[in-house]
Design a protein around this nucleic acid. Structure first.
Lengths: 133, 133
DNA sequence: AGTATATATTTTAATAATTGAAATATATAC
DNA sequence: GTATATATTTCAATTATTAAAATATATACT
């Protein structure tokens, strides 16, 4: 009896999840940052800051939770709140210089050679995933 | 100024994370299951049950949290606890018939054709990731 | 066998995270 | 100007998680 699609999919999902977590663990290693905090910092870096609502959407949590998450990162000195001048209701969370440095430095654990490999793999993975998800 | 490896890696990590979440959302859609619960059920399915300690390791939580997580799934009738006869200290959590059916049925949202595509992509992704992580 | 030590899980009290709803501040439409 | 809508924060209540103690079983040593 050959294994059906569904079982293979489940198996691969778990493997992939394990590998992703292993990578994130390496990144966070020795830092007092949770994986979610890491992802949030990266998200802010790549988007040049994020509005609270964007963060809530991204993580699927309520606005109240975002306030609390960001309070912590702010207290750590990694992010700061900036009120938008065009619409003074919205608050943009942006990395401080310390935050920028911290995020960047997480990746310097890996030698340049390894970073190049990781980059290539992630680009490929993303391309593949884009065909179905 | 060309974008350096690190920035590309961050960008791709986020994209991949978003796509993964989208897929998991589709799977959980309409179910009263969290993504973690979904993953745990799949994990139990693929491993033919899991010991509490294995679950704690997998999710990076304490044994107490595992007890609580499993209590909920047990109350939902999706898993059951089986004490091992070889070592009566360990409890193996296994899917009930209902649990098996539920997990399987989540994937039937997708037509066979789509499942085949997903399977291929995940196999490829996993192979790629195995080269660096 | 009996004692000491180790391991797996559960329980429990305390802490932390999250929610839902109200409050605040600002914006938009009529 | 008034009403309504949106973005964020605050706060009280709920839920999840932890750390440590308790329980049950296993292993090693004498």
């Amino acid at each position: 009896m050959p294994e059906n699609n569904i079982e293979v999919i489940m198996r691969e999902m778990l493997e992939i999840q394990k590998r992703s977590r292993r990578f994130a663990d390496l990144l966070c290693e020795g830092e007092s940052l949770s994986q979610n905090q890491l992802v949030l910092l990266i998200e802010m870096k790549i988007n040049n800051g994020m509005k609270a609502t964007q963060i809530a959407d991204f993580f699927g949590v309520t606005p109240g939770a975002v306030t609390s998450m960001c309070d912590k990162l702010e207290k750590l000195g990694l992010i700061q709140r900036v009120r938008e001048s065009e619409d003074r209701r919205v608050v943009k969370m942006i990395l401080t210089e310390t935050g920028e440095a911290k995020v960047h430095e997480l990746f310097l654990k890996f030698p340049q050679e390894k970073l190049k490999e990781i980059e290539q793999v992630l680009l490929e993975v993303n391309k593949l995933m884009s065909t179905v998800f």
